[in-house]
Design a protein around this nucleic acid. Sequence first.
DNA 1: TTATAACCCTGACAAATGTCATAGTCTGGG
DNA 2: CCCAGACTATGACATTTGTCAGGGTTATAA
Lengths: 234, 234
Amino acid sequence: MVCATPECMQCGSRLRNGMLEIGIDGALQVTQTKQTSIHRRGSYIYEHGQYPHGVFCIHHGHVKIVRSGADGRDHIVRFAKAGDITGYSSLLTNEKYATSCIALDDSIVCSIPAPVLFHQIRENPRLALHVMQQLSTEVQDAQRQIVELAHKTIRERLAETLLVLKEVFGLASDGLTLASPLTREEIASVVGTAPESVIRTLSEFKADKLISTNGRSIRLTNLKGLARIANIHD
Amino acid sequence: MVCATPECMQCGSRLRNGMLEIGIDGALQVTQTKQTSIHRRGSYIYEHGQYPHGVFCIHHGHVKIVRSGADGRDHIVRFAKAGDITGYSSLLTNEKYATSCIALDDSIVCSIPAPVLFHQIRENPRLALHVMQQLSTEVQDAQRQIVELAHKTIRERLAETLLVLKEVFGLASDGLTLASPLTREEIASVVGTAPESVIRTLSEFKADKLISTNGRSIRLTNLKGLARIANIHD
DNA sequence: TTATAACCCTGACAAATGTCATAGTCTGGG
DNA sequence: CCCAGACTATGACATTTGTCAGGGTTATAA
């Protein structure tokens, strides 16, 4: 679905207002060429194996970036939410997507064509530097995850994941309940374990008065306790 | 140790001869400002917690990039060898190193000052693009590691690691023995497990006629068998 | 509203992995 | 050449985690 409304300029304005400073002309080109689409929970923004044609910028909602393992099990390698950009690492290496990007909410996503992005990068060293910094942050996040998967228990990783979900999705109006649409299985595929282990460990946390649950929803009643489990070790 | 010999131009020439094309002037600037140092096994090229002042380019030998976990245990997140560049992700985000870089061999490493690198990036969009591509590859490698740590057994990960070591360090003149100086403990910190588990699994591989060992050295006698274990699952 | 599928939860058990103890082996420096 | 320290190797055992089965609950769509 093409986004033809003049006020739909978040992509361009974000690029301009951020540290990127692609200039009025650049913002105009981006705004004129981008395509906006609406997704419901579960719908694919891009899929493993396709060739990239551009980058995606999340206007509204939340998406998960998923990589499937050899045995068919999926792993959520990161989230993206409104304002975040995704899909450039495969575009830059000019390879098929190694990951899929799937909406978690009802989301609005716009896509900037590759030629436009490359043109802007060539024209503007500050944009280039910004992309490098984004990629550097991704590298460091991924390396941190590697170490944690290798050496932390499920208990530690789940506690940290709950705190990450708080950052990504925020809290409901009570200030305690995670505003996250993730199922236990999706949480498991962030933590890197089986859904049963997530459920069991959540029950431990309940017994330890760190959280309480009601159906899918989780209330974080002791943030410091969770942080202690997550950072320092058991 | 400053590298003053005129023939020591690998950094500059690599940058020029590669896809980077920084031009004669660029190569000259790099060559004139870089510093070359010699390291023995175990010596630090840079260390976790320091602030970066430039990027490092490996002339000769092999290094490990290590990240230490909360419990003090280290994890090898990747290797770099002659021709590879390392240390730019922390430089770009302008944060303390999250990793350490340690020589595995007697190695020769040269360092390009940050201002020179940034100047070259600003001047030359192709260099910028190349750095982005390197970073993209690192992101994808790291994400692959995440999924494997989350969902593969030690047996699978160790088989893959042996094949990786073959790519990084090559084989001795017999065409079978890994030319790797890694101890069992270092292999464990690639695989993400305890040294005992590595030794035990290597013994399984010996029993399965996939490898043979002699002290520290490992002979890969059945590459296809290892690949089968590594890729398809057990 | 109801039917249905997806999801949450727990128990029991099996398998994988970590930890500790101990002994043998290699290797580099004096 | 020899010794000390580091490394490899294996067994026994504890712990963590995965798998399978089954029952209750919730959400979604007709």
